[in-house]
Amino acid sequence: MPVHVLHYLHEGRAQWGVVADGAITPIPGEFKSTAEFIEANSAEQLLYLDGQKIAESDVQWLSPVTADQQFICQGANYRQHMIESGLDPDVKKFNMIFTKASSCIVAADSRLVKPKEVQFLDYEIELGLVLKRNVTSRQTVTDDNLHDFVAGIVIVNDYSARDIQIPQMQFYKGKSYRTFGPVGPYLCLLQQQDITKLKELKLTLTVNGAVRQSDSTAGLVYGPAETLTELSGVHDLYAGDLLATGTPSGCALIVPSPEKQRAAAQLPEAEKWRMFLKMQSERPQYLSMGDVVEARIASPDGSIDLGVQRNLVVAEAA
Rank of each mutant, 00 (worst) to 15 (best):
I155T: 01
N134E: 15
K175A: 06
D163I: 02
L121F: 10
F149R: 01
F180A: 07
A151L: 09
L146M: 08
S160H: 04
Y177M: 03
Y159D: 00
V118F: 03
A151K: 03
F149M: 06
K132D: 00
F149A: 07
K173Q: 12
S176T: 07
R138I: 07
Q168G: 06
G128T: 10
I155W: 01
V141W: 09
T142G: 07
Y172H: 13
T142K: 07
I155M: 00
T140R: 13
D144G: 10
K175T: 05
R133L: 05
F120S: 05
V130P: 01
Y123R: 13
S160F: 06
V135P: 09
Q168F: 13
G128I: 11
H147T: 10
T136E: 14
R138M: 12
N157W: 00
L121A: 12
D163A: 00
V135A: 08
D122F: 09
S160Y: 03
G174P: 06
N157D: 08
E124W: 08
Q119Y: 10
G174Q: 09
H147D: 14
G174K: 04
D143R: 13
F171C: 09
G152C: 02
D148A: 11
I155C: 02
V150N: 02
Q168S: 14
E126I: 05
L131A: 04
L129R: 05
V150S: 01
D143Q: 14
V154M: 01
G128P: 10
Q168L: 15
N145M: 12
Q168R: 15
Y159P: 03
S137V: 12
D148F: 03
A151W: 01
D143M: 13
I155P: 01
T142S: 14
D148Q: 15
T136V: 13
D144V: 10
